[in-house]
Each structure stands twice: as C-alpha cells, then as structure tokens.
C-alpha cells in the first residue's frame, strides 16, 4: 500500500501528515475521533543520522505538549543507512536516541503504536517499529533482519538449502509471518476492513509490559525466550 492510500484510509476526513525525503511527520484525527501524532519512514527509505534525529525531535515535541495523544509510527523502510558518514557521526547513538524517545514517550503516558505497511530491516526496524508498545502490520509487509541471499553469503550455506530451511523454521527467515510467530507483531490488520477502526481498537487496549516473548512462545516462533527470561528472574530473586 502506498503512504497516500494508507493515510487516506486512516484519516478519511483529512490530515496534516507530510512525507518528505522518505520521512513522515504530522498528525491527524484517526477515524475522525482520536487525535494522534504521526511519525514514520516511507518509500522504502534507509534511516540515517539526519532522519533519526528529525523523527526524535517530533517525538520529543509531542511529549512536551500537555495532551497525551497516541503516537502512530508508520513504517515502510529499508535498513539503517550504511555509510561512512553515518558511522563517523555515531549512528548507534542516533538510533538509540530515537528508540529511547519512543519508549520514554510511552512511559509518559502516550500510547505508541507502529503500523508496518511495507518493509523494514535491522537497525531501522529496532529504532522505529520495534520501539513501540504495539506493532501492527498489513499483509504483504516484509520485515527482515537480512535478506536470504546475504544470509547465505555470511553463513556460507547454499541459498536453496536456506530456502528449504526457511520453510520449516520461522526463527531466521525474513517475512511478516515469521516475525509474527516470534511475537514481534501483535496483530495483522485486514486491509479490506476499516483500517482506522482497527488501529483505534488497538489503541483502546491498555499498554502492557513487554509480552513479546510470551507471545513468541504461544505462537511457537520463539520456543525458549520467555521461559529463560522468567527463570533468570526467579534465580535472581532467590540468590
């Protein structure tokens, strides 16, 4: 789905969201009833230092306001921008800063909901969609850590073999279904239905503690994580 189409479905009565250089900023009234702040990455853009700091500024200005409106993060990106400039400037700090801003906004009472409507990968995914309380997705969205040909190169396994393995296990292969099974994606929306209503419904649920590992265990995509983390907490308590 293009961002224009997505925005018109979310904000049928109009909005003041702008998309510039692959970055999304603004706000609107979701489904005509719920004011939200909007940020995001569009047009399959890479997220670099300039983009991350601009998005973080928007989050901080939302937090400065008195109203605790939800923050909606729309994502159709590629990975972090890979370049000499970005690493020389300390991209790790910029992406961490954006993630911290979103997480602290949630702690300040803003609901943070991401909607993955295209691609996302690696550091860009961590600093945007994965830094929200709730991650929603549209069918056809394609989150990944790394594409299979690159994984084949690094692991020195034949691509055909990897494709075969990917069909059997969700734990390493790209794709929405695989990420949903590991617990990253709370819910996949129905694009034929009322998108605004579906996002509003997700917003109406109270924020919870991080339950993605428990969800991953339930769905079978991350069999061990929740139990391991819980066991560590128990051992720490009795130590």
């Amino acid at each position: 789905m293009t961002h224009d189409k997505l925005l018109s479905k979310l904000f049928p009565a109009g909005h003041n969201v702008i998309v510039q250089d692959g970055l999304v900023f603004g706000g609107g009234t979701l489904g005509g009833s719920q004011p939200v702040h909007v940020i995001g990455v569009a047009e399959r853009s890479f997220l670099g230092v300039e983009g991350a700091i601009a998005l973080a500024e928007h989050v901080l200005s939302a937090v400065k306001g008195t109203a605790r409106h939800p923050i909606l993060v729309l994502v159709d990106s590629r990975s972090q921008r890979m370049s000499r400039h970005d690493e020389l400037m300390g991209l790790n700090e910029f992406l961490a800063h954006l993630a911290k801003c979103l997480l602290l906004a949630a702690a300040q009472g803003h609901r943070t909901v991401a909607l993955l409507y295209g691609g996302s990968a690696a550091g860009a995914f961590i600093a945007t969609a994965l830094a929200c309380d709730t991650l929603l997705a549209l069918p056809g969205a394609n989150p990944e850590v790394m594409d299979l040909p690159s994984i084949a190169r690094v692991t020195k396994l034949p691509l055909e073999k990897l494709q075969e393995m990917a069909a059997a296990t969700p734990v390493f292969a790209p794709g929405l279904e695989n990420f949903a099974q590991t617990g990253a994606v709370a819910q996949t929306l129905d694009p034929a239905g009322d998108l605004a209503a579906q996002v509003l419904e997700a917003l109406s649920l109270p924020p919870t503690l991080d339950e993605r590992d428990r969800l991953g265990a339930e769905r079978g995509g991350r069999p061990r994580a929740a139990e391991i983390a819980a066991r560590v907490c128990r051992e720490a308590k009795t130590a």
């Binding site: 690696a122 961590i126 994965l130 734990v171 292969a173 590992d213 995509g221 994580a225 983390a229």
Partner: peptide, 11 residues
C-alpha cells in the same frame, strides 16, 4: 536465529 536475536535486542 536472526528474528529471535533482533527481537531480543529490542526487548
């Protein structure tokens, strides 16, 4: 185990 690793980093 890329997806599990990525998610762990987020957690």
């Amino acid at each position: 185990e890329a997806n599990a690793g990525e998610l762990a980093i987020s957690e």
